[in-house]
Design a protein around this nucleic acid. Structure first.
Length: 808
RNA sequence: GCCGGUGUGGUGGAAUGGUAGACACAGGAGACUUAAAAUCUCCCGGUAGCAAUACCGUACCGGUUCGAGUCCGGUCACCGGCACCA
């Protein structure tokens, strides 16, 4: 018999729509649990199989928490601003708001189809003015606290789309969408000072329950390195400051290098005797994209600034100064001291330009390559007062010398850059600022928020890379809230990361029109207890939202310094054969098809059973059958079950064992082994028979995985009437530890570490009894014949290992 | 190059240093059926053997251990991230 999944799923989804068993109640006295999944971007393609994996996993965790007595918040929403919608709108001349609305409808239907226990009354849409009013409000707080500033910087410009692209949208120097060439262009941008939080973003990871690879990746991205700033004199009179992590090698400095954009290059124009050559190099470097500068340049290039020399502070030696594009303006001071003996890049440059290479740490062969020791045990040579020291000791000694002599100071640098926050796009939150000639940048009064997106006729970006909003002169021209004089609105919009940086806060209090969320609601629900999401967001969304949250904490509007207590991450779902799913490969799996053929419960179960949650797995249409077969077997147990509400004696052990295993596995997201354990229990039921009481335990365990079918079974077996509750509202089953193990155990018998057989012995048998039983095994007899047992290793209830040698 | 991760049957995958391959998919055999599907039961790493059994087996080489898929050192391959960060 097969169960009628279509009718059953429809019935129970209608029931849940009506009775709202997933409603979260702010302020409820039960302990709270806040489970979160990354809200989807409502694309035109609808849900794909990638979504249900994390959604189902956290849904299962939340369902279990409800049964354990928690007041659970498991919300959903839509990250609705973004480029694909805007491009679709451009192509089809439909307003992006309408496109978004339609897409959300599709997503909602699909999410409901899969039976997720979301609290739908808390649904948010980042493109809804009642939502982005508060995104704008938060931005204004950033602005008011000097955390947002406008700066001119180089951005990626697609020559074909005539549009500014984010770094993520540039693939190998070309536009991700059209493949056109991407060049660098100077543009004035809003920036957020995330770098101000760099240290705290590292330090506070220690108290969080994030999986290690997330912590490591965030730390690497922030890229803290400790070293020193060293002040070099120059013959031009200016002090040239560099950053180094290896101040121990100062005696090995044989030249200096500036980034081509360094301010001193222009400043020294009159003293530089080869200016034409220098100017040409600067211009050429400026034209190169970052991609070309990083990727294509194998051989170091550069030009010496003739006419100016640097002066090494430790020995007063005059050294040449070069410009080269291997030195980045965006890190450190944009200038370096070059130690070719102990830095591979400097070594390569020195070889090209014939600079001297002076060894200051013994141990390598600097004729062949730079000696960049990994440990810190090398011995200093040719280094004046450092001679004879280890590198480890030389670094602090030199630091102290620099400070004492006013030649430098300790310094920490980060790779993290400030966050480019402007997009020259239509479909994003308008930045709620106006520019007044007299007052400069001024925030739009809070009473005027939300500053809504005006209706425009064309969403296409303009030729000069301005936002489409710039054409709306009626909207752009306004008055200054400060002085009442003429002012212009900012026409750039926010990036799609804005709305997602705080959405988990809005879920706590989604209908509040006085505040982004009340402190009471935030205190009740915060922080998010468990947040699962993709690794691809580790250094973007996850970092950005931690930054926003810390800022909100600092201004006293959120109660915790971190937004998420626990972070886990799921592996990708690949197509059959392990290839990435893509339209061009034609291997995309649509969840709708699986649900139509097998039902939502099978879909949910299978996507959990398919493999280790953290690892990538390939989808197999064939294998889905197994999960469906299991559900059918569970369903058919109803006919087999004996008429008793007690757990049967014959199944006592397997039931208790399975309750323990499933409960523990769910908490570790090991859904695959939890399901395997339930399958094993069902196999036992088929072999040994079962009571309705046994089945009841299975239904409770299976309820989070296959909620529709279980509720139907719960009703048919009479439990719904008996308890007046749905299965999902029952208490999570408990187990008796003593009953999770049999009275007898099977133990392995080894002779000299080789398996010779197994024995059945009473639980917790002592060594003598085990050895006696072991000696009864034929193979053991044979293997120990004429031998002397001189050592016995007993692992209780597991194994006994007899170590033998020939008897004399 | 650097930082993470992974490598187990025909396949997806299980295994706190303790019986490798749980649980499934595919495959094989049987029961039921006029028949097929479905369902139920059994078999299913390799080599040799009628068999009992023996030997081999968790990418590769070595080590620690009574015992290693698991720990340590080295090598290779693949995946993800970063990449001239001084």
């Amino acid at each position: 018999m097969k169960y009628d999944f279509a009718a059953i799923e429809k019935k129970w989804q209608a029931n849940w729509e009506e009775t709202k068993p997933y409603a979260a109640i702010t302020g409820d006295p039960r302990p709270k649990f806040y489970g979160l999944i990354e809200f989807p971007y409502p694309s035109g393609q609808g849900l794909h199989v990638g979504h249900p994996r994390p959604f189902t996993a956290i849904d299962i965790v939340c369902r279990k928490r409800r049964m354990e007595g928690y007041n659970v918040l498991f919300p959903i929403g839509y990250d609705a601003f973004g480029l694909p919608t805007e491009n679709y709108a451009i192509k089809n001349h439909i307003h992006p708001a309408i496109v978004t609305k339609n897409n959300i409808k599709t997503f909602q239907a699909q999410l409901k189809m899969l039976g997720y226990g979301f609290d739908w009354d808390r649904c948010v849409d980042t493109s809804d003015p009642s939502y982005y009013k508060w995104t704008q409000w938060i931005f204004q707080q950033l602005f008011k606290h000097d955390m947002a500033y406008k700066a001119t910087m180089t951005v990626n410009w697609c020559t074909s789309c005539k549009v500014v692209l984010a770094n993520e949208e540039v693939v190998g120097g070309h536009c991700e969408r059209c493949g056109g060439e991407v060049v660098q262009k100077e543009k004035s941008q809003w920036m957020l000072r995330i770098t101000k939080y760099a240290q705290r973003l590292i330090d506070d990871l220690d108290d969080l329950d994030f999986i290690d690879r997330v912590k490591i990746q965030q730390k690497n991205w922030i890229g803290r390195s400790t070293g020193a700033e060293v002040n070099f004199g120059t013959t031009a009179g200016d002090t040239l400051t560099v950053f180094t992590t290896r101040c121990d090698t100062l005696f090995g400095v044989t030249y200096m290098v500036l980034a081509p954009e360094h301010e001193y290059v222009k400043k020294w124009r009159d003293q530089i005797t080869n200016w034409d050559e220098v100017a040409a190099y600067v211009e050429a470097a400026g034209k190169k994209s970052d991609f070309e500068r990083a990727e294509l340049v194998k051989e170091k290039t550069g030009v010496q600034l003739k006419g100016v020399m640097g002066i090494n502070p430790v020995n007063g030696q005059e050294i040449p100064i070069f410009i080269s594009d291997y030195v980045l303006m965006t890190y450190g001071t944009g200038a370096i001291m070059a130690v070719p003996a102990h830095d591979q890049r400097d070594w390569e440059f020195a070889k090209v330009f014939g600079c001297p290479i002076i060894e200051v740490v013994k141990g390598g062969d600097i004729e062949k390559e730079a000696f960049t020791l990994k440990g810190e045990e090398g011995e200093m040579v040719n280094s004046g007062f450092l001679n004879g020291m280890t590198v480890k000791d030389a670094i602090p000694t030199m630091k102290k010398w620099l400070v004492d002599n006013g030649k430098g100071q300790e310094k920490v640098n980060y790779k993290l850059r400030d966050w480019v926050f402007s997009r020259q796009r239509y479909w994003g939150e308008p930045i709620p600022l106006v520019n007044c000639e007299k007052c400069g940048w001024v925030a739009v009064p809070e009473s005027e928020l939300p500053l809504t997106l005006p209706q425009v006729e064309a969403y296409e970006p303009t030729d000069d890379g301005e936002s489409p909003l710039a054409r709306m002169t009626d909207w752009v021209n306004t008055t200054c809230p400060c002085c009442g004089g003429p002012a212009k609105r900012e026409t750039d919009t926010m990036p799609n990361w804005a709305g997602s940086s705080w959405y988990f806060l809005r879920y706590c209090d989604p209908h509040n029109d006085k505040e982004f969320a009340s402190m009471d609601a935030l205190k009740y629900w915060g922080p998010v207890d468990w947040y699962n999401g993709g690794m691809e967001h580790t250094t973007l969304h996850l970092l950005y939202s931690r930054f926003w949250h810390k800022f909100l904490y600092d201004i006293g509007v959120v109660p915790t310094k971190e937004p998420y207590q626990k972070r886990t991450s799921h592996g990708m779902i690949l197509g059959e054969g392990g290839e990435k799913m893509s339209k061009s490969r034609g291997n995309v799996i649509n969840p709708n098809d699986i649900v139509a053929q097998y039902g939502a419960d099978t879909m949910r179960l299978h996507i959990m059973f398919i493999g280790d949650f953290e690892k990538a797995v390939s989808w197999s249409n064939e294998a889905v059958k197994g999960s469906k077969r299991f559900l059918d077997r569970c369903w058919n147990l109803m006919e087999m079950a004996e008429d008793s509400d007690e757990i049967s004696e014959k199944n006592e052990i397997i039931v208790n064992k399975t309750i323990k295993k499933v409960g523990e596995d769910i908490d570790e997201l090991k859904m695959n082994t939890a399901i395997a354990a339930m399958m094993a229990m069902v196999n036992d039921f088929y072999a040994n028979g079962l009571t309705r009481g046994d089945l009841k335990q299975l239904m409770l365990l299976l309820s989070p995985f296959a909620p529709h079918m279980v509720e139907e079974m719960w009703e048919l077996t009479g439990y719904a009437a008996k308890y007046g509750k749905m299965a999902m509202q029952m208490d999570w089953p408990t187990y008796d530890e003593a009953k999770t193990v049999d009275s007898h155990v099977e133990m392995a018998v080894q002779v000299n570490g080789k398996l010779k057989g197994t024995i059945q012995v009473p639980m917790d048998s002592e060594q003598d009894a085990v050895v006696a039983a072991a000696m009864e095994v034929e193979k053991v007899k044979k293997a120990t014949e004429g031998m002397q047992v001189f050592k016995t290793i007993l692992v209780k209830n597991k194994l006994v290992n007899l170590i033998v040698k020939p008897a004399k």
